[in-house]
Design a protein around this nucleic acid. Structure first.
Length: 571
DNA sequence: GCCGTTTTCGGCCCGACTGTTTTCAGTCG
């Protein structure tokens, strides 16, 4: 069982406890546990099998939660969860997804009106039953109806790449306004999380009204949802909601720190402040209600005896401890990259020719690239069989002869078939300069089978890289059940590298997996998987994911010069 | 439910905005 699946049980239990009116600190304990499990870099199920006694060494896991984790791994449930599910129907749990509706209101809808599904809720809201409820009203009923429509239409999280440009554009426009000095996109967007729930934009201004009016009238804004003197919430036309916060200049750094989050990171920062007799909020650092500092973000970290921490790391996943020891990583940057080793051409499903791709890559300043079109199994993409592949490589040879100053590898993105064999014979793979092995089909196979497939690929002497290891597509499909502990170990033994695929919908390995790979000393390759020359520009999204994993340039193989990179190849 | 250089009980981060109230609970980030 994967960590995310285990974590989901505890999050569900925390939700249900909350609806049930349980002690809020108890609820928090379950939420913390869910997070600890989700963030754990190796398999919790393995810990349960190998050393269950060590579970209580995990932060926020005591005797009771350790027992429940064991139960979940063994049976998929724990008794308390089974019991509370009987008490609170799944449809009631779903109501929590509605914006503006929390556990207390859900409990009222359930207990007072007996609503147990979203459909029943819709009817009750339409017929005025909800508005009559104590603590509810016409507006709440209306917002419930809007929320139900929203859930039907969009779900609730957006790809970073789909929303960051909108946030950047709005910020740029707000910064043009008179009286607006500083501003930045904060929140999970600034932390470069792969998906974003909503956007936070922060600006300094003396007169907030003008800024708020400008946002309300912005071409990307659909509707103003709420407006106060310092905060305005709007919905953008692309569906995501955005908070604009207007803060005085002396509080800018504190507000930046506060609204960048994560919540978990900030809780630790505020606790450190308390320990030092200070109070941290979005207005600054205070001692006995007297402002100590807050103008710049680094002020806040200095006040709690830490160096400034890069936003991507602010998840309370060990960055505070690294900061304490002054061992924060120097995170990899786009400009560190010297090659891109996964891209397609018109030979399969790309839209640019070999020559166009090579020239575009050279213009980007790369020292080396690999052309890696699909193998035959991917018939939808016109995948290459041995004969066509060899011809394709001859074409690449030709272009290589004509364009100097960039190394072009004869590559292949070879499918690992459902029966765990490779889609092309060994003698063909042996002729390649660069082989990426990937799962495209049969992603729903049991973990055991997926494991065999990846292991066979890693043991194949011609394979250099496992591409987009889980095959997930964000918001579309979850990806294969990969046992990363074992896969990384085998990759280490056989000198196989692991990819962070920079495509915004893949970003696979994810941050937690990539951190684990780094921990094991496996070289990571960040690739665009470009299907066009513009596709080569997707690199930043992959870099963001790498930064969230704490990767430095030295952890990323394609930051090396060609001369150094060459030595990492298996033959 | 967890945790401990304030250690086995008593804390556990902090403030803005809304809608429904008539002084505040609920929700959110």
């Amino acid at each position: 069982m994967q960590n995310t699946e285990i974590a989901r049980r505890f999050t569900e239990y925390a939700d249900l406890l909350e609806i049930d009116g349980a002690n809020s600190f108890r609820v928090r304990a379950y939420r913390n546990a869910a997070r600890t499990i989700e963030d754990h870099t190796s398999s919790i199920a393995d810990v349960v099998h190998d050393a269950p006694a060590t579970l209580t060494e995990l932060p926020g896991i005591g005797k009771d939660l350790a027992e429940k984790i064991v139960a979940v791994v063994d049976s998929g449930e724990f008794d308390a969860l089974t019991d509370i599910r009987k008490k609170i129907p799944a449809g009631v749990h779903e109501m929590l997804k509605l914006p503006g509706i929390g556990p207390k209101k859900v409990a009222a809808l359930f207990h007072e009106l007996g609503l147990t599904t979203l459909d029943m809720l819709k009817t009750a809201a339409e017929t005025g039953k909800v508005a009559e409820l104590k603590g509810f009203g016409k507006k709440t009923a209306q917002s419930i109806l809007e929320g139900l429509t929203q859930i039907e239409q969009t779900g609730h999280r957006f790809l970073l790449a789909d929303v960051k440009p909108a946030a950047d554009e709005i910020l740029t426009d707000l910064l043009q306004l008179e009286g607006v000095d500083r501003g930045e996109v904060a929140g999970s967007c600034r932390r470069h999380k792969e998906t974003v729930g909503d956007l936070d934009v922060l600006v300094t201004a003396d007169m907030s009204d003008a800024v708020m009016d400008a946002l309300a009238a912005h071409r990307l804004v659909e509707k103003v949802l709420a407006r106060g003197p310092t905060k305005q919430r709007v919905r953008l036309k692309i569906g995501i909601e955005m908070d604009l916060r207007v803060v005085p200049d002396e509080s800018y750094g504190a507000a930046m720190q506060y609204f960048t989050g994560s919540k978990e990171h900030n809780i630790v920062i505020r606790r450190r402040a308390q320990e030092r007799g200070l109070k941290v909020n979005e207005y600054g650092v205070f001692r006995d209600d007297v402002l100590v500092c807050g103008k710049d973000e680094s002020d806040i970290y200095t006040a709690v005896d830490l160096p400034w921490i890069p936003p991507e790391l602010r998840e309370n996943r060990g960055e505070i401890e690294l900061a304490e020891k002054n061992k924060l990583p120097k995170l990899v940057e786009v400009k560190d990259l010297k090659g891109d080793l996964h891209m397609h051409t018109t030979a399969t499903d790309g839209v640019a020719t070999i020559r166009e791709m090579v020239e575009a890559a050279k213009a980007k300043g790369y020292q080396y690239i690999a052309i890696t079109d699909h193998s035959q199994r991917v018939s939808m993409a016109n995948g290459l069989n041995a004969e066509r592949l060899r011809k394709h490589w001859k074409e690449i040879d030709k272009v290589r002869g004509q364009i100097s100053g960039i190394e072009v590898l004869n590559g292949i993105e070879c499918d690992i078939l459902e029966d765990a064999t490779m889609d092309l014979a060994d003698d063909v793979l042996a002729e390649a300069d660069w082989v990426i092995a990937v799962l495209h089909y049969g992603l729903k196979q049991p973990a055991e089978k997926i494991h065999d497939r990846l292991m066979n690929a890693i043991r194949n002497p011609h394979v250099n890289l496992i591409g987009h290891p889980t095959g997930r597509l964000l918001g579309k499909r979850p990806g294969a059940a990969v046992r990363f502990n074992d896969v990384f170990k085998a990759a280490k033994d056989h000198g196989v590298m692991m990819e962070i695929n920079a495509h915004p919908q893949r970003l696979d390995l994810d941050d937690i997996q990539a951190a684990a790979a780094k921990e094991m000393g496996i070289p990571i390759v960040i690739n665009t998987d470009a299907h066009s020359t513009q596709g080569l520009e997707m690199m930043p999204w992959g870099i963001y994911q790498a930064r969230r994993a704490g990767l430095e340039a030295k952890d990323v193989a394609n930051t090396k010069s060609w001369a150094q990179f060459k030595t990492l190849l298996r033959k």
